[in-house]
Write a protein that binds this DNA or RNA. Structure first.
Lengths: 346, 346
DNA sequence: GTGAAAGCGCTAACAC
DNA sequence: GTGTTAGCGCTTTCAC
């Protein structure tokens, strides 16, 4: 029942060599006689020996393991980041300790402690924003840290984000080009660092066009927040509406709220999201959105972290390009004056 | 830059005790003088000492870590399972090594090897179905294994699933009660173990009602498969349609395909899903579905595993109850004869 | 090219 | 009640 795994010692005995020699074979050292190497490899195969990464880690003082803390794996934005991260990590032979913080700061703190105990070589935090306490913990973290999707809490901690300002600008400009004049921006959760940046991009576009207004309502990054925002706006105003949403989930929630209110999309209201999650093609109507390269964000985090593990001092914020994907949820406002409505297109 | 972490030795020196005593304090042994304990605790606090789980694992020959392999974290079904799993694991002081296999069997195999190297104490595989090679690997796995959402490949490996047969039955019965007579079942991916069970449940309901037919079309568990299935069916037949879908993603895809074909839901076609992912409330119309208790599945897996870690021999398949949630995507077929259409309701 | 031996940080058995 | 010690499985000098 408990057949106690073979150790390096078993391999050494079976191959009639010393433990040191087994290690040399394992690490591919050239200073081993081919016949010896063959004997060792055979013993390894016969015994189905797998070196203990635990013992190795103790000896080497590094685990070749990194921690990845995700605020909320339920948010469809993150799984794609995780995939990019895991793929890249695997290529480098790094194990990934994935932890889902479920949007709970305490849980996030405990994850951090756990990862520290497990002696991960580095930590990546993928979150919409860091809380103060978290930021402090990360600053004094004993191993390299990389942030994904949130601002860096410290100049020495690198961060990977999207070009949110350009994204916000694209979204607003798209609606403006269609002829919309009264835009509504549905914010993300208060702690999301990128919300103000996206909003600023949208403001830029609005400012540079004649007679365009931009209202702002709070959201929470979830379906329900989008729905609530749409309700509030439809109650207060009259169509046509033009919504720029913090993310796709918010946008889907908003479309739901608009439908509830009996409004047609894109007839009475245009809606634009952010992220380009898989679902956007399948909503009714399909959602126009600003696409983030989620997979690349995960991959990039690993690349940065790899350089840090090699001892290089990396810092600064890296912003990946975004692009607009036009689908059915945005259109010329009903009752608009056709092509002439486009006043500021470049 | 590399301030070398404090070890138990540092704590011992600072508290002027032996390392053994520090261990005793750490493990809460009663055989320690209160004043000594206090000195040790202070030293720990001052040095910010965190015991190395690596060294401890080497010594104890157990890591208090379990591996959780998820076929595809992109499928919204799994994150909820993961949450239930992580919450329960944390309560037991178990670390979770989460691995996303991205539906790639090779990756799954490599994850398994990695987890073995890292010496996890147990492994849980959450997947729609196991491939043969995987099943073999699990059978001969050196530590306890629990399966979630797929059939057990071996009588000694416990599995946690939902009561899929009842779910299939409920779904079909609901449509029959509404007056539908020609049902279409959209299958999941071929490797999904539960597809035939759910189908069998639906068949049972269909058989026990006069004049009800049940057609079957292939799906793949994804949005695109649902869309393709809907296209095929709408081309071949005439409304009203009644779709039972393997899961919610399939159902959302199917609704998309139906809309494309110009059909109204639920006017021309009723659609019912399986899983009850968060999104179902927000589709247009909201999706009727058979809800699985995903969180409980994750939690249950940990409970089982905990008993196995305690040396208990656990086996057998456990099936958790499901329930029907009626929303807007299902309705009486247009042109049906009203209440009298309900012939077999109990 | 290979072996011997020390030691990574921890716990548990045995002294006292 | 506390100290001492061996050893978990591995890698890496240092000899030869």
């Amino acid at each position: 029942m408990k057949p106690t795994r073979p150790t390096i010692r078993d391999v050494a005995e079976r191959a009639a060599v010393s433990r040191g020699t087994v290690t040399r074979v394992l690490s591919g050292s050239p200073r081993v006689l081919p016949t010896t190497r063959a004997r060792v490899l055979e013993a390894i195969a016969v015994l189905d020996y797998q070196p203990s990464s635990i013992a190795r880690a103790l000896r080497l003082q590094r685990t070749r393991t990194v921690g990845l803390i995700v605020t909320d794996i339920t948010n469809p934005f993150y799984p794609e980041v995780v995939r990019g991260f895991e793929d890249a990590a695997e290529r480098l032979g790094l194990g990934v300790f994935l932890s889902n913080a479920a949007e709970d700061p305490d849980r996030e703190a405990r994850s951090l402690a756990l990862l520290q105990e497990r002696r991960v070589d580095a930590v990546v935090v993928a979150a919409g924003g860091l809380r103060h306490r978290q930021a402090d913990a990360l600053r004094s973290f004993p191993v390299p840290v990389v942030i994904v999707n949130a601002s860096s809490p410290d100049p020495r901690i690198p961060a990977v984000l999207s070009d949110s300002r350009a994204g916000g600008r694209m979204a607003a400009q798209h609606l403006i080009d269609l002829g919309h004049r009264r835009l509504v921006y549905v914010l993300g959760p208060r702690e999301a660092d990128e919300t103000p940046v996206r909003l600023e991009g949208a403001r830029e576009a609005a400012r540079s066009s004649q007679g365009v207004t931009l209202d702002v309502v709070q959201g929470d990054g979830h379906l329900s927040g989008g729905t609530a925002a749409a309700r509030a706006v439809t109650l207060a105003g009259t169509p046509p509406f033009a919504f720029i949403c913090h993310n796709d989930m918010t946008a889907i929630g908003a479309m739901h709220g608009l439908s509830e209110a009996g409004l047609g999309i894109p007839g009475d209201a245009s809606v634009i999201g952010f992220d380009d999650i898989a679902l956007t093609e399948y909503t009714v109507p399909p959602l126009t959105t600003v696409a983030q390269d989620k997979y690349a964000m995960g991959r990039r985090a690993v690349e940065i972290l790899d350089r840090m593990l090699a001892g290089e001092a990396v810092s600064g914020t890296e912003r990946l390009p975004v692009h607009l994907i036009t689908r059915g949820s945005t259109a010329r406002p009903s009752g608009s004056v056709g092509g002439s409505a486009v006043t500021t297109a470049r």
